[in-house]
Write a protein that binds this DNA or RNA. Structure first.
Lengths: 236, 236
DNA sequence: TTGGGACGTATTGTATACGATCATCTGCAT
DNA sequence: ATGCAGATGATCGTATACAATACGTCCCAA
């Protein structure tokens, strides 16, 4: 792992408490151990991490800013439950920025980076063949990490942070609206993109990326299901 | 004003205290009433807005997440002092996303939107001809609002929030590294972009936007001036 | 005059306490 | 049985209190 957040804020090892809680919850959300709508009470979070409500609250507020949890005044924090419209916006945003990130990344990529990416792919493939929840979760994370790694290579810390947010929220959307049991990302598509980068076929790489994102989105069933309507819920 | 943050978080009129402080400080930063490096002590902020440190702290943390203030552990919060490298990343990000936003905006723009944009331009022009600090500040804000309005028209709340961050941070960068006394944005360039949109010349609009951003960036003197080195500071 | 160490002050980090708000449950009237 | 009014409990919003850290000052020795 290269140093990531170095340019933005020099934060040695620091801000342990709040940051740690925030990251823990975020990872839990990305790996879908926490489902959309789950209540995150300040008390419970605090107890879980052995800190006071103050820090738990700070962590939840930060997550709310990232769009991963939604806080309702006087009612508490919940794992975000993105609406279909929000979901569309998330993917629209990804279509908008990822080709650009890819271009910047391709311009600065080193052979070392490429081998690291391939390593990631291998890992992903390995996990895909395994059974079990933990493997599934690790796979989900790995497939997101591919996109994140690309952003990191691009060298733009701002875009990197933005992509982190988008990937995390995408995971929520897929958890909610994904239908196929198949893995979150078409694994082979990641490989194709790397190949295109290696071959200096930048335009093709971008096209592949757009296809890839469209592919993920196509697997969603973005229909407003507001409580399923009570009638539809019971009439078989 | 169309409803902006409606899709993301339903927050009637609410979260008054912290949000209000945060927005106040942000506007102050964008309008350059607060200079980079200025210390924002929790006590002072709290007293200023007649709230306790708790809320002041929450506001500062939120601003830190936006990259507008940097908090140093046990030392306090300061108005961010972006490094030249950060500045470059900010503008790189804008070059990356603004054409895309422009495209989406152009696809959904209504005649009403266009007239509103023109109104904004007029206002901007009027302020430009005036003298005085307050006029200058209002002008800075107006020129940023042009870009923000475009993001709003695009209909993507996520990109809108992202642009808000970028515009605010740009203002900081310009405050630090801008050299020409001329207004932050080439005023006429905004008009050209609108004209291109109106004429359905999308590619040209994007080109103009990229030029516009490059133009802003060209006015910066992005040299590391770390305390000016003491020698250079005195040797005439 | 310069360097270093001890102290005091100011500011942040975290926890706790109290008041306010909302959700739920009970009981009575219809 | 249904619907509304009041009470109860849990949770959040905000303020305050205490502990920990960093910075500046002063003094003393070299």
């Amino acid at each position: 792992m290269k140093s990531a957040a170095k340019a933005t804020q020099a934060e040695d090892s620091a801000e342990t408490s709040t940051q740690l809680i925030r990251d823990s919850i975020r990872v839990a959300i990305v790996e879908r151990r926490l489902s959309p709508g789950t209540k995150l009470s300040e008390n419970d979070v605090g107890n879980l991490f052995n800190v006071s409500r103050t820090l738990a609250r700070a962590a939840l507020q930060a997550l709310s800013y990232e769009g991963l949890v939604s806080v309702a005044k006087n009612r508490g924090a919940f794992v975000a439950y993105p609406s279909p419209d929000e979901a569309r916006q998330i993917f629209a945003a990804r279509r908008l920025v990822e080709p650009g990130i890819l271009r910047e990344a391709a311009a600065r990529i080193t052979p070392d980076d490429i081998s690291q990416l391939k390593q990631l792919l291998l890992e992903e493939g390995r996990l895909m063949s395994e059974r079990g929840q933990t493997a599934r979760r690790a796979e989900i994370k790995a497939s997101g990490d591919f996109h994140l790694r690309l952003a990191e290579i691009s060298g733009n810390a701002i875009m990197q942070r933005f992509m982190e947010e988008l990937v995390a929220r995408s995971s929520l959307v897929i958890a909610l609206y994904g239908q196929s049991t198949v893995s979150s990302c078409g694994h082979s598509e990641h490989g194709d993109i790397i190949a295109a980068i290696e071959g200096d076929e930048l335009d093709r790489a971008c096209r592949l990326m757009l296809h890839h994102i469209a592919h993920i989105e196509a697997d969603l069933d973005l229909r407003e299901r507001k409580s399923l309507g009570l009638k539809e819920a019971f009439e078989l």
